[in-house]
Write a protein that binds this DNA or RNA. Structure first.
Length: 666
DNA sequence: GCAAGGTC
């Protein structure tokens, strides 16, 4: 018998899955101190030089080690917040992690090798380094390798076991830099803001701490930006030419190629030319096959957006429900950026498990009987997790309401991914009328395909166009100038905010929902159903405070909440959707963003620029073109400068708070 | 009483 080898995964579910693939059905052994932490012991023949080994497979649960300021800095009055930029840091294990670290130490004592099975992403690399450090303290000479895997399919795991690779120190260093920067900037600005601003608000409003974070502030910035776009919106009048022609009993509406113009005289002149020409001439008549593409494999961000849109849950709720479904083994790991399935993955086996369902079972059976299509591949792969998909079948009566809806969505999305695109035929007629181009389109849906299992997408046949032939001329039944007004955008909704955060690299798939919850908790923003407040209902022009919330701690209070007792399902002005939640900044949220914008724009803490720049620097560490130390020093220099300017110009911030929160002028 | 990132 060869060596003893300790394998450590990032979470218990991976430890269990890997143990079962490598060791057969291995019994779980309890670890003292934590009910859910298990060790799996088995024998396994690795490739040379390791050979046959006694394996102990266990896990951590995310990060193992906490980084904090030295104890002398922890009390808020212990120092000037500026000192936190270079205060000493300590690392320690706390809470449940003590039992986890103890388990690793106990096991490492008898092992000559440590094989790390954390997720193959940046954080996973750092967690791997944490595990290594804990093991090396007990056993300095232990050999350390890591497994490279991106899903827990059997063949893939076995392959990973055969080809261990070294830990990537560079990625771990990038995370170390992030941790240090977030801690120093977050704590220093939070203390500064709270100490300077809280006293002038406190007697009017119950605010807790006034926190700053590299993610929460840009998130708030998006909400406030949109608020001002709505508030400052000036409707503009535009004019357009509408042409209608009745043929074979069908009213065909032709749309102007120019859509609309903002100059009435120009539109009138063009319109008169049309009338002078009298007849319109068909310049193009085209029928062509068209299709509506099936959705991409499901990522976390997409799940959150769809949750807000179709499942009536905010992103945090969706994630909580998805987490529970995952824990119970019904769906795969819900935190993933990957929108492509591995070619080797046995998708049909997953479909098979859904054939027993009364609702979508027949559709799933249809896929197995021949209509299966390989899912589309998106552009993202986090190399750590596959797209979210159902794992096992569960009957509806074993799930609560929210779980039912999320599970059903995940299943339908997966089945849709494995189907064929919807097919149809589009018809386009283009006419020249007085030198202006107009067009009408028609659509016939021929094969619904994936749409049959995926009701979240809509694609319906329009009225069929009567036949036209190129060269044909006709005198339009009606032609007129129409007038309209541009309408303001709505306040930001959660799916829009998530999309903005995603596009700007604010937060990760696992944390975006938390940042949104955080700015609500801090009373920087509040939510309300679209249409329930003055601004959207009455056309945006009402007074300052009508739309702005006056938040108190916990994000409650404030005007505009549940006005008129129409329940959540207020009719929105835009009509299409009811019960869409909008995010409205509170006076405090606006004051903070305005205050920082006054102090300096490019480096404003309210903008995503600084966080984006930091992200690029972290990537540079991973690529080996920068060191952790360079990046930390450079970034701290930047933030120190912002901190100094904020301190100097605290008057600006205070003035913004007085203006918005206290309603004082000037 | 502070952050953001893992995860239970």
């Amino acid at each position: 018998m060869g060596a003893r080898i300790l394998c450590v995964a990032e979470k218990p579910s991976i430890a269990k899955a890997v143990a079962n693939h490598l060791g057969g059905s291995v019994p779980a052994r309890n670890v003292p101190g934590l009910a859910w932490l298990k060790n799996y012991e088995f024998e396994y023949s690795f490739d040379p030089p390791w050979g046959r080994c006694n394996v102990v497979m266990t896990s951590v649960a995310g990060h193992l080690i906490k980084t904090e300021f030295d104890s002398r800095y922890r009390s808020w009055n212990s120092c000037n917040p500026a000192e936190l930029f270079d205060a000493g840091l300590t690392k320690f294990v706390e809470g449940d992690n003590k039992a986890i670290a103890k388990n690793i130490e106990t096991q490492a004592r008898y092992c000559s090798k440590l094989f790390i099975w954390t997720d193959c992403d940046r954080e996973g690399e750092y967690i791997g380094a944490e595990i290594r450090d804990v093991a090396r303290k007990i056993k300095p000479g232990i050999e350390v390798m890591r497994a490279k895997f991106s899903n827990i399919e059997r063949a893939h795991i076995i392959q990973a076991a055969r080809r261990p690779i070294p830990l990537d120190e560079k990625q771990a260093n990038a995370v170390a830099a992030r941790i240090e920067l977030d801690l120093r900037t977050g704590s220093s600005f939070t203390r500064l803001q709270t100490q300077s601003l809280k006293p002038i608000i406190d007697h009017v409003q119950d605010v807790g701490i006034i926190s700053y974070g590299s993610c929460q502030f840009p998130t708030l910035g998006f909400v406030v930006d949109r608020y001002f776009r709505v508030k400052n919106f000036k409707p503009e009048t535009f004019w357009s030419i509408k042409v209608m022609h009745k043929k074979d009993g069908v009213n065909v509406n032709f749309h102007w190629q120019r859509v609309h113009l903002f100059d009435r005289m120009v539109v009138v002149v063009l319109y008169e030319r049309c009338l002078q020409t009298k007849t319109a001439k068909v310049t193009k008549m085209q029928r062509k096959p068209t299709s509506k593409w099936k959705p991409l494999p499901l990522t976390t961000v997409e799940l959150q957006k769809m949750g807000s849109r179709f499942l009536r849950m905010d992103s945090q709720r969706v994630m909580k429900v998805a987490e529970e479904l995952y824990q119970k083994g019904w769906i795969s790991y819900p935190r993933t950026e990957t929108d492509q399935f591995d070619r080797g993955m046995d998708l049909k086996a997953i479909i098979q498990r859904q054939t027993q369902d009364g609702t979508w079972g027949p559709f799933a059976q249809g896929l197995l009987s021949g209509s299966f299509n390989q899912p589309r591949s998106g552009r993202n792969n986090d190399q750590a997790h596959p797209p979210i998909h159902p794992v096992n079948y569960v009957t509806r009566d074993r799930l609560n309401d929210d779980e039912k809806r999320v599970y059903e969505f995940v299943v339908r999305r997966f089945l849709a991914c494995c189907s064929e695109d919807a097919k149809g035929e589009s018809t386009t007629v283009e006419v020249d009328y007085g030198g202006e181009d107009f067009h009408a389109t028609g659509l016939i849906v021929l094969q619904r395909n994936y749409l049959d299992v995926y009701p979240y997408d809509k694609w319906e046949s329009s009225q069929q166009l009567p036949p036209f032939t190129v060269g044909e001329t006709f005198l339009p039944t009606e032609a007129k100038v129409t007038e309209g007004k541009t309408t303001p955008p709505g306040y930001l909704t959660e799916p829009e905010l998530i999309a903005l955060m995603d596009a700007n690299g604010i937060g990760t798939d696992a944390t975006m929902a938390e940042h949104i919850a955080k700015i609500k908790e801090r009373a920087y923003v509040m939510t309300r159903p679209r249409g329930s407040g003055g601004a959207t209902m009455d056309g945006v022009t009402d007074g300052d405070d009508e739309a702005l919330g006056r938040g108190t701690r916990g994000g409650r209070g404030g005007r505009g909440r549940g006005r008129g007792g129409r329940g959540g399902a207020t009719l929105g002005v835009r009509g299409r959707t009811t019960g869409v939640e909008e995010l409205i900044p509170t006076t405090l949220g606006v004051a903070l963003m305005e205050g920082y914008n006054t102090i300096g724009f490019e480096t404003s803490l309210s903008k995503p620029f600084l966080r984006k720049e930091m992200e690029l620097k972290l990537k540079a560490i991973c690529a080996g073109t920068a060191t952790k130390n360079d990046v930390v020093q450079e970034s701290l220099e930047q933030y120190r400068a912002v901190f100094a300017r904020t301190n100097q110009q605290m008057g600006m911030l205070k003035a913004a708070v007085r203006r918005y929160v206290l309603g004082e002028n000037g």
